[in-house]
Design a protein around this nucleic acid. Structure first.
Lengths: 97, 97
DNA sequence: ACAATAACTTTCCATCTCGGAAAGTTATAT
DNA sequence: ATATAACTTTCCGAGATGGAAAGTTATTGT
């Protein structure tokens, strides 16, 4: 896949879902993402980290009943990468998507 | 991904491309797929094998200048799985497609 | 008839990724 | 002071992936 719109970081099933979720919801809590994907805390945490490492998402903290919770959102870069990736998927499955 | 339309065999980048190619072309030669994906013989051979193992594709042999060459095509099952997978992708990235 | 070649397939290996479980952190509630 | 919430990291084991090299089988060239 020399054509670089295809993004392996985004393509992994769980991360594709995370990006899709964030692309439509603006801000989502850790627990909501975790439950939506049906994965464990540790697994989600690691995917989150990967997406943060390439600056596709960022987190903000806010307190709910005194406890700190993290809310995630796509960065401009992340949104762009996700859109390009989806375009590339469309190109690949041309006709069908 | 409990929802079973999502197909991990098909999702892998190279295999997604193979399926997409076969879904629009009916019959494609080994070398054409290999060059299209830009992978080595061995790599393509292994992906082909995986798709054959689950009966998503089949091969037919035919001679070109006396040499035997393999042509691949999606089976009904493979075509169906590919279409369902694409539908699932659409569902996941809903809004963007 | 026999070596060379085409067209793959398998094996060998080294790397990467993924996931669950358990342990570790840090801040707050009791 | 201790327990608990909300994650994060570490540990470990399984499976995927890829290239290179070796192995197959049939066919062509001499």
């Amino acid at each position: 896949m020399e054509n670089s719109k295809f993004d392996n970081i985004i393509h992994a099933p769980n991360r594709l879902q995370i990006c899709a979720l964030l692309s439509s919801l603006e801000q989502v809590e850790f627990r909501v993402i975790r439950d939506e994907l049906g994965v464990s805390d540790s697994v989600l945490s690691k995917h989150i980290k990967q997406l943060e490492d390439v600056c596709y998402i960022k987190q903000k903290k806010s307190k709910v009943n005194g406890r700190e919770r993290r809310w995630f959102h796509l960065t401009t870069k992340g949104r762009r990468a996700f859109e390009l990736h989806v375009e590339e998927l469309k190109r690949i499955v041309r006709g069908l998507l």
